[in-house]
Design a binder for these strands. Sequence first.
DNA 1: GTCGCTGCAAAGTCTTTGCAGAGAG
DNA 2: CTCTCTGCAAAGACTTTGCAGCGAC
Lengths: 156, 156
Amino acid sequence: MNSSDKKLIPYSKLLDDFKLLLRRNGLKFTVQREMILDVLYNSSEHLTPEELYELVKEQNPNLKTGIATVYRTLSLLEGERIVSSLSFGAQGKKYELGAKEHHDHMICTSCASIIEFVDEIIERRQQEIAKQFGFDMRDHSMQIYGICKNCKEKEK
Amino acid sequence: MNSSDKKLIPYSKLLDDFKLLLRRNGLKFTVQREMILDVLYNSSEHLTPEELYELVKEQNPNLKTGIATVYRTLSLLEGERIVSSLSFGAQGKKYELGAKEHHDHMICTSCASIIEFVDEIIERRQQEIAKQFGFDMRDHSMQIYGICKNCKEKEK
DNA sequence: GTCGCTGCAAAGTCTTTGCAGAGAG
DNA sequence: CTCTCTGCAAAGACTTTGCAGCGAC
């Protein structure tokens, strides 16, 4: 599993942050919410709500879980910037924990696979452009859309 | 309308290419297909299928047009690389002609103003990165979020 | 004339919502 | 106890598909 090489914070810290956030907003800490956070933390992939739902059920077969709760929790987490979402090709979104190192995305519009990358030249250039416009850059996102190697080969 | 300053090829050329392509594939050139291409050509925006459908109806109220045809035509055009699609936030896709100049966005989170820009260094670098991964880049989008010059000055 | 195209409506997907009971605080 | 959450099923939003008639070639 190569999921651990992207972790910036330990799970316990993430969990504490989440609990604090819930308390501050008069929301409740439930098993379902913990499971969803857990699965997100332990996955190196970008997950669709459906995939996340399956993983949660798999990891805890005793707990009844509805997909509606997954959607509701993702919505909550995204609003709090704990996860971020990407839209890809056909339909739907994929989610990932925001607590990872910054990276950009290359998205295959054919198979919806996602390649993460960071490029220093681009990162630096963005800063320069922002500066040029007197713009105070706080964040950015970049997606490259196209056809990945695998799909290109399949097409032939 | 500032849509015209982005055109890379004249409409007549685009239309001829489209007709040729149809003929080559044993497909037919219909009024609906022409209308859709026309609206796409004359819009500087990324359009949702729904928006495109509305514009087509508006521009040609006499012609009966179904949204299914819009979807089918977009699918065809995308398959032939004449239009490209982008998935945005919420849901659904937006389409635009591939024959336009590309630009990125700098978005002020304070006043929501948008600055468009193109940077050759970044554009080139993206191509290189895609190539590195054996990825066939079709499109990309980049957003820089932050505080624009005006808002920064106001804050003081 | 043939065979692809179109509009319509029905059927699919994916996501959200209403509700009554369960459970966290 | 109170008030939020949850699962379920129903409702929505967005796309695709089947079909019979229409129209490009």
